[in-house]
């Protein structure tokens, strides 16, 4: 879990052009200045890093099961997806 959260913070930090220390679990993408393109790129990086399929449609970002509201929620969603794959 720790590893996953750190990797998510690294991905988000790279998109936001910030230091990893400046990205906290309760940071929102909006507060870090990540726009819609940055979000799509972050999702792509997450998929590549964790080898998962993220159910994300930019037209309805809040309607998928993948909660992007904060770094912590993204981490939890990734964990759930990985757990789902292992079943």
């Amino acid at each position: 879990m720790q590893d996953i959260e750190l990797k998510v913070r690294e991905i988000i930090a790279e998109q936001a052009v910030l230091a990893v220390e400046d990205v906290n679990p309760d940071s929102t993408l909006e507060s870090l200045g990540i726009d819609s393109l940055g979000l799509v790129e972050s999702i792509f990086a997450i998929e590549e890093t964790f080898d998962i399929q993220v159910p994300f449609n930019a037209n309805a970002p809040t309607e998928s099961d993948f909660d992007i509201s904060s770094v912590a929620s993204i981490t939890a969603a990734i964990k759930a997806l990985i757990a789902g794959q292992e079943k």
Binding site: V40, I43, F44, F56, N57, A58, N59, A60
Partner: peptide, 20 residues
């Protein structure tokens, strides 16, 4: 597909439930 703006179901312009 990569851009995440495509709908898997239908093109529903202006409808509140449109999804791409």
């Amino acid at each position: 597909e990569g851009l995440r703006v495509m709908s898997k179901s239908a093109c529903r312009p202006f409808s509140a439930d449109r999804n791409g």
